[in-house]
């Protein structure tokens, strides 16, 4: 894997006439943990969704592990196999068991033998501390457990980069920490991560680099110490004071 995992150069995106992303420049090194925060509607989710082509950007260049993201289905497939994604709403497949959720990608997309896929799935279920739920359906699990299954499902594809789109925003407060603990453990193992979140405690603990977005632009970046203790822009100061107040 090259030194730079993800690179965005002057990326622009419009939803119809609405300019969601304005000249986004971003570089994430291998093994780096980046946390993106900002008010809702600032485009932070869209940035993450552009990286694995769930949204299409109209201008600029996105490279993942040196491969440029284009309309060519091959480049999209290549990039998606390197990039895992964890969603706010978990998006587990409700008609499949936890184990089937985890093995579907390896078996169908990668052509892995079933036995191997199952042992890999059990390995990652152990990592997220719920091997005993393997044969239940997602609907029988708590939100926190579902999100941990979703993380394990991404890990089963052995991605080089993991994207998190507000992974704890749909959870009851008492379940947030069990998900964050799993994410901290992943970060400690050197996983390259981009996390959109408002969990500032997590950000302070884990992030190598903070990004603050507002109105489709990157307003401020920096290591967490300077970002939290001495934010330069007024907009960022205001945002931080609002969410850290409570």
């Amino acid at each position: 894997m090259s030194e730079t995992a993800i690179e965005m150069v002057d990326v622009n995106k419009w939803f119809g006439t609405f300019h969601v992303l304005k000249d986004i420049n971003l570089s994430v090194k291998t093994g780096e943990r980046v946390v993106i925060c900002g008010p809702s509607g600032s485009g932070k989710s869209t940035v993450v969704r552009c990286i694995n082509r769930l949204e299409e950007h109209q201008k600029g260049v996105i490279r993942v592990d040196g491969v440029e993201l284009t309309n060519d289905p091959k480049s999209v497939a290549a990039i998606r196999s390197d990039v895992g994604m964890v969603f706010q709403q978990f998006n587990l497949f409700p008609h499949l068991t936890v184990l089937e959720n985890l093995t579907l990608g390896p078996i169908k997309a990668r052509g892995m033998a079933k036995a191997e896929a199952v042992s890999r799935a059990m390995h990652y279920l152990n990592r997220v501390h719920i091997p005993d739920q393997a044969h239940k359906r997602p609907g029988q699990l708590s939100g926190g457990q579902q999100q941990r299954v979703a993380i394990a499902r991404s890990l089963c594809m052995e991605p080089k980069v993991l994207l998190f789109d507000e992974p704890t925003s749909a959870l009851d407060p008492e379940m947030i920490s069990e998900v964050l603990d799993v994410m901290v453990a992943l970060a400690d193992e050197g996983m390259t991560m981009i996390v959109v979140t408002h969990e500032m405690g997590f950000a302070r603990k884990v992030a190598d680099n903070m990004i603050f977005m507002d109105e489709g632009q990157v307003v401020e970046t920096g290591p967490p110490e300077t970002f939290f203790d001495a934010p330069r822009s007024a907009r960022c100061q205001q945002f931080l004071s609002q969410i850290l107040e409570h």
Binding site: N52, L54, A77, R80, S81, V83, G84, M85, F87, Q89, N91, L92, F93, P94, H95, L104, G105, K108, A109, R110, A150, R153, S154, C156, M157
Partner: peptide, 30 residues
């Protein structure tokens, strides 16, 4: 069927036919 189901299927590498076959249709048929 929620759009997130298709997105999740795409992010684990399933193509269009696989997404329909294993994720969307089994839920839609019900």
């Amino acid at each position: 069927i929620a759009k997130g189901q298709t997105e999740a299927a795409q992010t684990i590498g399933l193509n269009y036919v696989q997404t329909m076959r294993y994720v969307i249709l089994p839920q839609a048929i019900r």
